[in-house]
């Protein structure tokens, strides 16, 4: 079958499943990235805290998660998650056999935990770029901690964090390809399925690569726009 018919949207075309799979890639990467933002913000806060124990915990988290392969983390969540669910099932009178965890949740959690470690460093760096004077000024007008965080700290930290977050988003997007090992039908898994049933692996993997390129290019452009927008009030060096 010629390439465009194979990847088209006709009756025998694989265009529709591939497009759906690209959507799934975006969905799992986005969910993972948002989970990672939450974890990363907490870890950054822990790294900046006065207590040695919370600092050591946060340092340990970022060092370990950035030092081991993502694939191992995915295996831990996938197999470890099913073992944990199995134990819980036994507690409630289950048989203790293999229970499969939802692949989407596993993927989002694994991407979240890994990208949280990178985002923690991004947020910490952005916080140190804040000018001390602004925080002192906020204190001196009597803002309490939460109001100061909401009005002064968070908006500026986000502004300085945008370029770093863009890099972490690219990492999350590429890590989402590894989620295919859990059987989640995202772009790479769908290509494997298509390659297996049509015996045209090259056509499918090239298409997957092109779709990834489109997604990364559009997101690079989007983060650049966001950065320009956030920095519009700042004088550039």
């Amino acid at each position: 079958m010629p390439y465009f018919e194979l990847m088209g949207f006709g009756p025998n075309g694989w265009g529709r499943p591939m497009a759906m799979a690209a959507g799934m890639t975006l969905a799992v990467a986005t969910c993972g990235f948002l989970v990672g933002s939450f974890i990363g913000a907490l870890a950054a806060w822990a790294k900046l805290s006065q207590s040695i124990i919370t600092r050591a915990l946060a340092d340990g988290y970022t060092t370990v998660l950035r030092g081991i392969p993502d694939l191992l983390v995915i295996y831990l969540f996938y197999f470890g998650g099913s073992a944990a669910l199995g134990h819980i099932a036994v507690l409630f009178g289950g048989s203790g056999g293999f229970i499969s965890v939802p692949a989407f949740a596993t993927g989002a959690a694994a991407i979240g935990v890994v990208s949280g470690a990178y985002q923690a460093e991004v947020f910490r760096g952005a916080y140190t770029a804040l000018s001390r004077g602004e925080i002192e000024a906020a204190r001196s007008v009597g803002m309490h901690r939460f109001l100061m965080f909401r009005r002064i700290v968070a908006p500026q930290v986000l502004r300085y964090a945008i370029p770093g977050l863009g890099n972490v988003w690219q990492l999350a997007l590429k890590e989402s390809a590894l989620i295919s090992v859990t059987g989640l039908v995202e772009l790479l898994r769908q290509s494997q399925i298509g390659a297996g049933s049509t015996r045209q692996p090259f056509a499918f993997y090239v298409t997957a690569a092109m779709l990834y390129l489109v997604i990364t290019t559009v997101s690079t452009w989007g983060f650049q726009r966001a950065e320009n927008h956030a920095m519009r009030g700042l004088r550039r060096a």
Binding site: K174, P201, F204, Y205, V206, A209, Y212, L213, T216, T217
Partner: peptide, 15 residues
């Protein structure tokens, strides 16, 4: 712009 795993599959299975 593409994941390494896609590149590996492209070379090993695709070719």
């Amino acid at each position: 712009g593409t994941p390494l795993l896609v590149q590996i599959f492209l070379i090993y299975y695709g070719l």
